[in-house]
């Protein structure tokens, strides 16, 4: 009576996860959307017909048309081109900021969880303090201290999300500390560094991947928020949040300047959130009903 699939050798957990992800329609749609966005960011010069920085006062504040698909802004710049180019920056910021947070936070968490003791106490209290400042306000304060630039924006968002990764990795590392295969590794004389890198970290990768995917969405949103408040990417560089901010004063007569960059942010963030949810379901079979 059993289906033929059961007679096959058990599949690897990785392939298992992929096939589960493949059955999640939301996650597949999200992957497709993200593929389009990445493609657009990579091929920006070839898919846009206008220079994102080219000003033309003769066509300022135009509504969407065949020549300018999403219209033009107050300097006559093509909004579609600017959104595509801004996508590059947003994606870079999202991934680099999460990279900073996940690598440094994750490393600190793994080391603290593995060793425990005073080091753990000290570092985790520091994380508690960072967590008690609202994330976006912490990022704002860091930008305020360092000054507004692309690099500082990534650092600020990265630091502001760092405690979450530290906490996650610490919890995972602590639960793995006493597990047999770690003790076995210690018994054969592996160094602590190698145990952390080869045994601890690969075993807590699944929740880290989920948190990072959702984290990129959050980081893109944070960066756009900071730019909107004038604390992030400075003009004339195209950035979604900054474009929105510029469009505010023309909300009455040219609302398209404000509408489209917001749609772009929402689409990216939604796709990443959907993918993160899908990954969580796929990577953690325990959570599935």
């Amino acid at each position: 009576m059993s289906p033929p699939a059961d007679s096959r050798a058990p599949r690897s957990p990785m392939r298992e996860a992929w096939s589960r992800l493949g059955r999640n329609r939301g996650a597949l749609a999200a992957l497709a959307v993200l593929a389009v966005l990445f493609g657009g960011a990579l091929l920006a010069p070839w898919i846009t017909r206008h220079d994102p920085a080219a000003m033309d006062v003769l066509v300022r504040l135009q509504r969407p048309s065949l020549a300018h698909w999403l219209g033009t802004d107050n300097f006559g710049r093509d909004i579609f081109s600017r959104i595509v180019y801004a996508g590059r920056i947003s994606l870079i910021i999202g991934f680099v900021a999460v990279g900073i947070g996940a690598v440094w936070g994750g490393a600190a968490g793994a080391v603290c969880g593995y060793y425990g003791g005073k080091l753990d106490d000290g570092v985790m209290r520091l994380m508690d303090i960072l967590l008690s400042v609202p994330q976006i306000i912490l990022a704002m304060a860091i930008v305020g201290v360092l000054g507004a630039s692309l690099f500082n924006l990534m650092v600020a968002v990265g630091i502001s999300v760092l405690p979450r990764y530290a906490r996650l990795m610490r919890a995972s590392a602590m639960s793995l500390r006493g597990v047999e295969f770690v003790e076995a590794a210690r018994a054969v004389g592996k160094s602590d560094l190698r145990i952390i890198l080869e045994d601890i970290i690969p075993n807590c990768l699944a929740p880290l991947i989920v948190l990072s995917t959702l984290g990129v969405a959050q980081a893109i949103l944070s960066a756009a928020t900071l730019s909107f408040l004038g604390l992030g990417i400075q003009p004339p560089t195209p950035e979604w949040g900054a474009m929105l901010s510029d469009g505010r004063q023309f909300l009455r007569h040219a609302p398209h300047i404000t509408i489209f960059p917001g749609v772009a942010i929402a689409v990216v963030v939604m796709a990443l959130n959907l993918l993160g949810d899908g990954l969580r379901d796929a990577l953690d079979p325990k959570l599935r009903e």
């Binding site: 756009a224 928020t225 909107f228 949040g241 929105l244 404000t258 917001g262 942010i265 939604m270 959130n273």
Partner: peptide, 12 residues
């Protein structure tokens, strides 16, 4: 609700 940037939602 949590994908739409709040500043954009406000402007809309």
């Amino acid at each position: 609700g949590f994908s739409v940037p709040n500043f954009w939602a406000g402007l809309m």
